[in-house]
Design a binder for these strands. Structure first.
Length: 148
DNA sequence: GCCAACGTTGGC
DNA sequence: GCCAACGTTGGC
């Protein structure tokens, strides 16, 4: 799951109660559907920093709460406000994410250097999705080999 | 700031 | 439903 550290970085989440944050602001249907349809409490998450000086994996996390309406869509003052969304029929949802471990930063170049991660969705050319599935083998390689 | 690669919008 | 124009993402 990508986040911009200038907005909410891993240190910000670690400073929050229960090291947990609501993943507000996703406004892409595919990414929303991953949260809504796929993610369960306890699912493991790679916490990724994007649009910053050092893009890469910054930590490990897990899903702490099933998808529910994103609070920003109802706030007219928020850039994430959606006038077409109503509390009775919300368009956007988010899960809660709890950071379980801050790791060393694994940069993009390093990720790309490993053939084991060649097919990782995050690394595919043209990928702009802020939430992408991670293959169990990819998770194992990253947590088992790269972070040892 | 550039720009590739998308995704969304809206006229038809 | 098509598709051109426009907007966004995100690494560099």
């Amino acid at each position: 799951m990508k986040t911009e550290p200038g907005v909410v970085g891993i240190d910000d989440v670690l400073a929050m109660p229960n090291q947990t944050v609501d993943w507000w602001g996703v406004r892409n249907y595919q990414a929303r559907n991953f949260m809504r349809d796929q993610m369960k409490v306890g699912d493991k998450v790679l916490f990724y920093h994007s649009s910053c000086a050092e893009p890469g994996i910054a930590g490990l996390a897990e899903v702490a709460k099933l998808a529910y309406p994103d609070r920003m869509q109802f706030d007219p003052k928020s850039p994430y406000f959606d006038p077409k969304s109503t509390p009775g029929n919300p368009r956007w949802v988010n899960v809660d994410v709890r950071v379980t471990k801050k790791t060393r930063l694994i940069g993009l170049a390093e990720l790309r250097s490993h053939p084991e991660l060649e097919r990782m969705r995050l690394l595919q050319r043209g990928n702009r999705l802020s939430i992408t599935p991670v293959d169990p083998a990819e998770w194992e390689f990253i947590t088992g080999s790269l972070l040892k």
